[in-house]
Design a protein around this nucleic acid. Structure first.
Lengths: 224, 224
DNA sequence: CGCTACCTTGATTCCTCTCAATAAAGGTGG
DNA sequence: CCACCTTTATTGAGAGGAATCAAGGTAGCG
């Protein structure tokens, strides 16, 4: 089952125009925990996430890792630098990806519109990483987790009646690595938010946002 | 006095080829503390830093700010997203900048080579921001500051005999905002490194790296 | 020369990490 | 389908590190 071309044309934020004459590669399907690419691999393709989710991590010598970004449907992942991938990309769940050849994008012979969208996607990525930096700056655990939940809600939240359901396809450790916190602190903070009645947990991997305004104010670093 | 074309053609990391037929805009000169652009401004130009240094900050409601990046000679700053600047850009010292019209870069009619270099610069920026994220992740103040000094040394350090001199064109607060620390902690950490004999301070705004290996090991989050 | 802005240093508090134990979830094989 | 095992999440107690609050010190500037 293939996706429509609109879906697979990386600029998820705004609605986009018709597809082009570009040769479409067959979509990739990866299972949970499978690597899409590894840090240091030569970049042959970039991928647009069609469904599922991936995590992009930078690993360093001492065994630690920084989770640089999550890739959700619509996101383009695998931006090259000097021809190499500089992160690992691992599937959080079963994930479908639309590959694009970088040779086709970069080359002047390539599709002009594709190239343009690629640039826009890269610029969006820069802005997104700046947002991520804001999260990591001098902010408390509550602010970080609250802001993280809000981001997830915006990206993948599903309204059920008044309430918004947010799926957490990643582990507590992943969340911690993304926010610069430990697993324990993430867990504690979620419990705290639950006790405050701001969210409810429906199983381990599903959050219900009970009071979005409250959550927003907790994320905002200002008052309480 | 105009710079050579090699200097003004944003890809500072690797040596680059000949200039193109692109119309060169006159360079901009800004004085200390002057804004090059502000968050929310429509993007007409991107700028390559020729000399001096700038700071890119994202400000938020509550008055706080996150220093997203520093711009040193060779760096391209002002990447647009949805046609807007999403940071402030302020000169740390008197700074010269080479402006490029985005209309000329983005448009298909624009210079092909320029467009290509622009994309590469954006991809490098993504990688650089990932490095910045690593700094902000769960690391101690010493690790952050040591890594910061090493980065500055690589970018702008000047060898004087065996030793490397590093200029700090920014305030302690700027360093703190960049690393997710307070001014006090930055100051204390620099003093600590000085006491350890790893660095020496030559005035407030100049650091001498006395033991680079030691500094590297302090930055590395691993042993001792 | 005094003012202002910035940096340094000190004392204390608070938050997050660390270490450790328990609990829940997921997976496997009988 | 259940018992067992492994992995992951939660919760607690305690220690450590950075933030905060507060006071001097230094440098630059009018």
């Amino acid at each position: 089952m293939y996706v429509t071309s609109t879906e697979a044309y990386f600029d998820n934020p705004q609605p986009i125009s018709a597809p082009s004459r570009t040769l479409r590669l067959p979509e990739s399907r990866v299972t949970e925990d499978a690597f899409v690419f590894r840090q240091g691999d030569p970049v042959r393709h970039v991928y647009q996430v069609l469904s599922g989710a991936v995590r992009l991590t930078r690993v360093f010598e001492d065994g630690g890792q920084q989770l640089v970004a999550f890739g959700f449907p619509g996101d383009l992942v695998g931006f090259p630098c000097s021809g190499q991938h500089h992160t690992d990309c691992q599937a959080l769940t079963a994930t479908r990806l639309q590959p694009f050849r970088v040779s086709q994008i970069s080359a002047d012979t390539g599709d002009r519109e594709l190239r343009c969208r690629y640039l826009e996607a890269a610029l969006r990525e820069i802005a997104a990483m700046q947002d991520h930096l804001l999260l990591m700056g001098r902010r408390s655990a509550v602010e970080k987790v609250a802001a993280f939940l809000l981001m997830l809600d915006e990206r993948t939240g599903v309204k059920v009646g008044q309430l918004s359901h947010v799926d957490l396809p990643m582990s507590r450790k992943d969340i911690g690595d993304y926010l610069g916190l430990t697993t324990e602190t993430v867990s504690r903070t979620l419990s705290q938010l639950r006790r405050l009645g701001v969210i409810a947990l429906d199983g381990i991997y599903s959050v219900i946002v009970v009071r979005p305004d409250e959550l927003r104010s907790l994320a905002s670093h200002a008052e309480e």
